[in-house]
Computed example of a mutant assay.
Amino acid sequence: MVLENSYFQGMKNPVIKDATATIVQRGNVFSGTSGRNESGGTAFDPKAYYAYTPDSAANVPSLLKSGTGPSSSIGTTAAASAKAAAATTLTVAKDGSGQYSTVAAAVNAVPANNASRVVISIKPGTYRETVKVPSNKPHITFQGSGGSRKDTVIVHNNAAGTQKPDGSGTYGTSGSATVAVEADDFQARNLTIANDFNEGANQSSPATRRSPCARRPTRSSWTA
C-alpha cells in the first residue's frame, strides 16, 4: 500500500500493518495522533500507471471542508429532476434485464413536467398491463426494440362494463383503454397495443361494448 499526502488528526493508532503487509508512507501529516503509526517494506509506484499531482497534505482539511455542508443543488427537487432528465432512455424488459419490468413503472419514473424527450425502450415480449401517460409527462416515446412491431405487445382485456377490482363500478369506454395518453407530444414506434377482450364469448355481458386498446386512436388493435 502507498499512503501519501493524507491528513490524520486526533486519532489513536492511525496506521497499523500486520506481519504480511508492506506500507510506504510519504507526505502525510499526523496532528494530535497517538499509538501505532507503522510503515515498512516496498510498494508499487502509482505514477507508473497514471499521472497525478497530489494536493499538499497540509491543505487537506480546508479542501475537505470546502466540499461539505449545505448546498443549494443537493437534495432539491430541481436537482432530482435534472438527474432524471439526463437519463433520456429507460429500458423495460419482462425478464428483469432492464431498469423496469413493466411499461407503467417506467412511465411512473419519468419526472413530472419533463422538458425533454424520454424514450422508453421496450424489449420484445407481451406486457399484460394498463398504462396511463398523464398530462404532466409530455415528450414520451414508447419504442419497441424487437425486429418487428409484432415482437413487443402491450395488451389487456378491460371493456366498458368490466368491473373494477375495488368494486367501485365499471371502467366505462375511456377507462377500459390498454394505453391512455393524456400528455402532449407522445410517440409510439415498432410495437403493438391491443385489447383482447373476447366479445364473441361475452355477447350477453354488459362489458361487450367498445373496449379500446388506446385512446388515440380507438381500435381493438393498434400497431405503430
Score class of each variant (00 low, 15 high):
191 L>Y: 01
123 K>H: 10
137 K>H: 04
89 T>V: 15
20 T>W: 11
51 A>L: 09
29 V>L: 00
192 T>N: 06
84 A>H: 05
74 I>Y: 13
224 A>P: 00
192 T>W: 00
212 P>A: 13
168 S>L: 14
10 G>D: 05
108 N>S: 15
24 V>P: 00
213 C>G: 03
140 I>P: 00
176 S>H: 03
41 G>M: 09
133 V>K: 01
219 R>W: 09
31 S>F: 00
137 K>T: 01
12 K>Q: 14
116 S>G: 13
84 A>Q: 13
46 P>G: 07
38 E>I: 00
105 A>T: 05
162 T>Y: 04
120 I>K: 02
96 G>H: 08
201 A>H: 10
194 A>K: 06
152 T>Y: 04
61 P>Y: 05
26 R>P: 01
9 Q>K: 15
21 A>F: 06
201 A>R: 05
193 I>R: 01
183 A>H: 04
4 E>C: 02
96 G>A: 07
143 Q>C: 11
142 F>H: 06
167 G>C: 09
103 V>C: 07
122 I>K: 01
187 Q>C: 11
5 N>S: 10
191 L>I: 06
32 G>F: 00
177 A>K: 03
203 Q>Y: 12
219 R>S: 15
65 K>E: 13
44 F>N: 03
172 G>Q: 08
41 G>N: 03
144 G>E: 02
217 P>V: 13
202 N>L: 07
208 T>A: 09
103 V>H: 04
143 Q>M: 15
106 A>W: 02
3 L>H: 01
116 S>H: 14
218 T>N: 14
220 S>R: 07
123 K>I: 05
109 A>Y: 02
54 P>V: 04
7 Y>G: 01
68 T>H: 01
63 L>R: 12
219 R>K: 15
171 Y>T: 12
75 G>Y: 06
223 T>C: 07
53 T>K: 10
13 N>F: 07
10 G>Y: 04
164 K>T: 12
159 A>I: 04
170 T>K: 08
83 K>S: 07
88 T>M: 03
53 T>D: 13
52 Y>L: 10
155 V>Q: 10
117 R>M: 10
131 V>S: 02
96 G>E: 04
11 M>Q: 13
27 G>E: 14
180 A>Q: 09
